[in-house]
Nucleic acid binder design. Sequence first.
DNA 1: CAGTGGTCTAGACCACATT
DNA 2: ATGTGGTCTAGACCACTGT
Lengths: 279, 279
Amino acid sequence: MIHSMTALESAAMDKAKGPGRGAAPTPGADGLRGQDAGLALGTPLYQEVKRQLLESLRRGEWKPAELVPSEKQLASRYGVSIGTVRKAVDEMVADKLLVRHQGRGTYVVSHSNQRQFFYFFRIAGADGTRQVPGVELLRFARGKADGTQAARLGLAPGAPLICFTNKLSIAGRPAVIDEIAVPQALFPELTRQSLRDRPHTIYHFYQERFGISVVRVEEQLSAVAADAAQALSLGLAPGSPLLLVRRVAYSFREQPVEYRCSYVNTQQHVYVCESGRAG
Amino acid sequence: MIHSMTALESAAMDKAKGPGRGAAPTPGADGLRGQDAGLALGTPLYQEVKRQLLESLRRGEWKPAELVPSEKQLASRYGVSIGTVRKAVDEMVADKLLVRHQGRGTYVVSHSNQRQFFYFFRIAGADGTRQVPGVELLRFARGKADGTQAARLGLAPGAPLICFTNKLSIAGRPAVIDEIAVPQALFPELTRQSLRDRPHTIYHFYQERFGISVVRVEEQLSAVAADAAQALSLGLAPGSPLLLVRRVAYSFREQPVEYRCSYVNTQQHVYVCESGRAG
DNA sequence: CAGTGGTCTAGACCACATT
DNA sequence: ATGTGGTCTAGACCACTGT
């Protein structure tokens, strides 16, 4: 019961009806069902809690890899029961935004984590094993969004972009060409040199340097014939079949932050995809 | 507290320690923590409940599209609290094995459901819209498993298989060649004619006629050049790039039930894939 | 109306990790 | 020893669906 409490709210605390409050639009204890933002009365309480947590995440109240307040603290902060906080956190864990560590606490996920990395890197050897690829920056330029890029990134055509191309090598052999476009507005200080120096993955870099967390990607796959440049880069004959992966990466609130075309040589590797269970 | 109760168990009911039982290996109320199968004492109770529910599903106690007993009934059947049943069911809903309908009950999922179908059919138009394809049976034969098929299906090389090939058309245009192999042992009565007559999807057909529910698939994607036969079937020039999808489909208990190679013409279509949220 | 799942509470005990 | 998340309970009230 910490936190602000409106007079309106404390008056409304008819109380003494035992446990249970239901999902009714009845104002509850305090905290959430009060002033704050657009409280959306019809919504379940735990969804409201989740919304608040998401907002705190987006605001950067807790940064990646940082410890979130304990469930008990969150419960009192929002004026709800622990079980309700738990349900909100459950969903955010399922969404891979938070991770729990028994006995230690709940943390904001970070792309520095290897498991997190492989979650978005789906290229594997024919036997299914994945390894971290080597990266070489081939190209870096500022440009303007074409029709496709603008549509996928939710920008106006002609909006300023930063475009760069990476070559990924696995076991020393070139395997993937990544053509990446990001809105210049979101990545103001992104330079060729900072990309080269980046020690970890690109998404970790986005997170550390620009406070942008990629939480979801949408991909469309197709097969294309390698053009001359791609063939040269990947050491293939022109016209060889390549796997084209068009990806839009989203941050919190479904905000698109990156559009990427990956051209994959699938002679030695495959793209893996599971449906039905853990992603 | 319905159901069997071992003398051992009822004796162990020290009781009267209020709510809470923890995840300890202490024997609990009755039902589950008793004789039954390999009870795995260290496991959480709700996992044990889930195991039992899965077993009932596998045994066919509740068939696809059928109503499962209410949560209250399940709770008394297994001698646990409703909250515990709820957590088990929650996971099975997340695994897409059950669906809840508020006010009606909980049902076993069925492949007749359209949503369920599209869950495993990931080919879409360039705009992202999906539609049900037309199917034409090109080939039907009995054969023996080669090395790859045997490995993927968990069979011995040379095990008897049923192999058939479908051509899928979208908007009247040939789009996909499906080469499907299933163990003859699992599909004894599968004939060319029954495949032709099948009114719904293949997985619905497996479910209805053979009691086999596909609950999960693993796919490996690559790009290949069309051979002469594929080019002819799909109306393409030989050597055109095709998207090859190698799929293993699993039923309950991770049992592989189908191995399939799909050759997709991605001129008009794409394979869609999401990571980070709902599958 | 009765029955179902959906939400919420308050509190207990546990396993685990850190101090 | 303390604090964390993980599990479990028992019961309340709600919204929805069928009769």
